[in-house]
Computed example of a mutant assay.
Amino acid sequence: MYRPRDTRRGHLVAEIVADLRRYSVDAQHIGHAFANLHGLNATDLQALIAVMDAELAGDPITPGRLGEHLNLSSGSVTALVDRLERGGHVRRGRDTADRRKVFLRYADRGAALAREFFRPLGQRTDAVMANFSDEELEVVHRFLTVMVGSMREHRDDVRTARPETPRRPPG
């Protein structure tokens, strides 16, 4: 954990770390509210975000890649995708070049639900970003890109070190 020194930079870094933590917690609360509203669990929500991110990047995700991303077995991924497909959140599609390959895509119904729920947040986000210059936004983007990479590295390290069976606290 970062321990700030009695410097302006130390205080600024400590404030940024606290802001990131608060942002993360608030984002989780909003995500859980969306999930609860639509009968989804935390893993369902993570899967939907992964499907959306892959589509936005122009590289639709396969069930296998989704399983790697979520650290799930193939059987768990199949059950997850089946559940999300039944709920109208995702759809399976075949690759036009290789019909054996399946891609997961956001279904129209699921995308509409997400747009409706997150539209006010998007409007707030747009209003906040309008107050920053392009140069400032470039710095923020660079910072967040590096922070996300660092967080993912740590997540992967934690997954690697985690024992196969969850430990329960004594008592």
Rank of each mutant, 00 (worst) to 15 (best):
Y2A: 11
Y2P: 01
R3K: 14
R5S: 12
D6R: 13
D6K: 07
T7L: 02
R8Q: 12
R9S: 11
G10Y: 10
G10N: 14
V13I: 08
V13H: 04
A14R: 08
A18E: 13
R21H: 11
R22A: 10
R22G: 03
Y23L: 08
S24Y: 01
V25N: 03
D26Y: 03
A27G: 03
Q28A: 05
H29T: 09
I30E: 12
G31T: 06
H32M: 07
F34M: 04
F34V: 05
F34R: 09
L37M: 06
H38K: 14
H38E: 13
L40E: 10
T43S: 07
D44M: 05
D44R: 12
A47E: 09
L48P: 02
I49G: 08
V51N: 13
M52L: 11
D53Y: 07
D53A: 15
L56D: 13
L56S: 11
A57D: 14
A57K: 13
G58S: 10
I61C: 05
R65S: 12
G67L: 11
E68K: 15
N71H: 14
G75F: 04
V77W: 08
T78R: 15
A79N: 15
L80W: 09
V81S: 12
V81P: 02
D82H: 13
L84H: 10
L84S: 11
L84I: 08
R86C: 02
G87R: 15
V90A: 09
R91L: 05
R92I: 01
R92V: 02
R94L: 03
T96R: 14
R99H: 09
K101F: 00
K101M: 03
F103S: 10
F103K: 13
L104R: 14
L104D: 11
R105H: 11
Y106Q: 15
A107C: 02
R109C: 01
G110N: 06
G110W: 01
A114R: 14
E116G: 10
F117D: 07
F118P: 00
P120L: 10
R124G: 06
A127T: 03
A127N: 05
V128H: 05
V128I: 09
N131I: 00
S133C: 01
S133A: 03
V139P: 00
V139A: 11
V140P: 00
L144A: 07
T145F: 00
T145C: 01
V146D: 13
V146P: 00
V146H: 09
V148A: 13
M151P: 00
D156C: 02
D157R: 15
R159Q: 10
A161P: 00
R162M: 08
R162N: 08
P163N: 14
E164C: 02
T165S: 11
P169W: 15
P170M: 10
G171T: 10
G171A: 08
